[in-house]
Computed example of a mutant assay.
Amino acid sequence: MKLLNRTALAVAALLTPVAATQAAVSLQSLSDTEFAFGGYVKADLMVSNYSEGAPDDNNISRQFYVPGAIYGDSSRGKSVTDFHARETRFNFAATNEIDGHKLKFFVEMDFLTHTDGNERVSNSYSPRLRHAFVSVDNWLVGQTWTTFQDVGALPEALDFVGAAEGTTFARQGQIRYTNGGWQFALENPSSTFTDYTTGVRKTGSSDLIPDLIARYNFKTGSSKFMLAALLRELEYEEENMDESTFGWALSGSGVIPVGSGRDTFKFMANVGEGAGRYMALNFVNGAVLGNGEVEAITTYSGFASYQHWWDEKWRSNITASALEADYDTSPVAAVNETSYSGNINLLYSPVKPITVGVEYLYALNERTDGTDADLSRFMFSLKYVL
C-alpha cells in the first residue's frame, strides 16, 4: 500500500507541471479570444390583403412574403392584421489566432417559420437555428448562407427577404474553401420534384452527390460584383423508380454606387435547369416526375433595386423582382409558373442603431392553368440593432 501511495504521489508530481502548463495555455488562449454578441430586435405590423382569402395564422406567408404561399383559404376573409417580433435575432461569435491560424465560430438564431406557437395568449415561439459554423483560415465548415447567394446584394427592405423571386436564397450545411475572390464549396444536396399527375411536391430519397458551387467576387472601382455557378444531381429513387438528371445554374449580382452621394443600385440575374429550391424560396421544384423520367425545370429570375438617401437620416428603396419557369412537359395539375413582386419603402434612422419605416409590397403569382393570386401589404417596422 505504501508503495502504491508513493507511486501515485510521484506520478502526481510529474503531471502537476503538465496540467499547470495546459491550464496556462488555455487561459492564455481564452484571454486572446475576442467575443462578440449581436443581432437585433425587430417589431412588425402588417396589414395584408389576399385576393384568394387569407392563409391561417401560422402560415409562413403571414410572417413574410413567400412566393407560392399567398393563395390562402377562400373560406376566410381577405384582409388581416398581424403584429409580431419573430424576425428578432441573436448571434454569438468568437475569434482567435492560435499558432498562426485564424479561428472563428459563429452561432445565430431567430424565431421565424415555426408553427409551434399561436397569437391567442402568449405568442411563444421557439428559436430556430440560422447559422452555426467554424472557420479555420480559408476553410469553413457548418451551416450558413449558400455560397451561391450574394447576401450583400439584397435590397434593404422591411420584408424579411425583400426580393423573394429574384434572389437565390438558402442556408445549409457545407464545406467551403476561400482564396482571395474565389470560393469553392460542397453543400448539402436536397432535391425537390413535381409529380406530373398531381402536381404534389416530392423530395428525393437518395441524394448522394453534394451540390458543387464555384464563386468569384471582384471589385471595379467602388462597385462590387459576384459570379457563381452551381452543379447538382437530382435523383429520385422511390415507388419502383430510380432516375436522375443533372441540374445547373448561373448567377450574377452587383452593388453599384450612383452619383456622388450614398445612393446605390443593386441587381441579380439567374438562370438554370434543375436549380429548384435555390430560386425564389423553392417557388418551383427542380424537376418533373412522370412516365418514368426526371425532367429538369428551367427557371429565369432576377431583381433590380435602387436606394436613394434623402438626407443623412431618411432613405427609400424601390425594388422589382420576378421569376419565370419553363416546363418542357407541363404537369396535368396546375403548378407554379411565374411570380412578380415590387416594394417601396421610406426608412428613418434618428440614431444609428434604430430604424423606423413603412413599406408597401405587391405580389402576383400565376400557375400553369392561368389561375393567379395577389397580395397587397402595408408594413410598419421598428428595428434596434444590438
Rank of each mutant, 00 (worst) to 15 (best):
K2V: 08
T7L: 15
A13S: 14
T16Q: 13
A24C: 07
A24M: 12
L30W: 13
E34N: 14
E34R: 12
M46N: 10
Y50C: 02
P55W: 04
A69Y: 08
A69T: 05
I70G: 02
Y71S: 15
S75N: 15
K78S: 00
R86L: 10
T88Y: 04
A94L: 06
F106T: 00
V107E: 03
S122W: 09
S126Q: 12
R128M: 07
R128F: 07
R128W: 05
H131G: 10
D137M: 02
L140A: 02
Q143S: 01
T146W: 06
D150T: 12
V151R: 10
E156F: 06
L158I: 15
D159G: 13
D159L: 10
A164C: 13
Q172A: 08
Q172C: 03
W182Y: 14
W182A: 11
N188M: 04
T192G: 01
T194P: 04
G199Y: 01
V200G: 03
D211K: 02
F218L: 07
K219A: 12
K219I: 04
S222K: 14
A228K: 08
A229C: 08
E233S: 07
E235K: 14
Y236S: 00
D242M: 00
E243S: 05
F246M: 13
F246W: 12
W248E: 00
S251E: 09
G254L: 09
G261T: 11
R262P: 07
K266W: 14
M268Y: 09
A269Y: 10
G272N: 13
N282R: 11
N282T: 07
G290M: 01
S305R: 10
S305V: 08
S316M: 08
A320S: 11
E324Y: 04
E324C: 02
E324H: 05
A325Y: 00
Y327V: 03
S330Y: 00
A334D: 11
Y340R: 06
S341G: 08
I344Y: 08
N345S: 14
Y348L: 12
V351E: 06
I354H: 13
Y362P: 02
A373I: 04
D374C: 01
M379L: 06
S381A: 15
S381T: 13
L382Y: 12
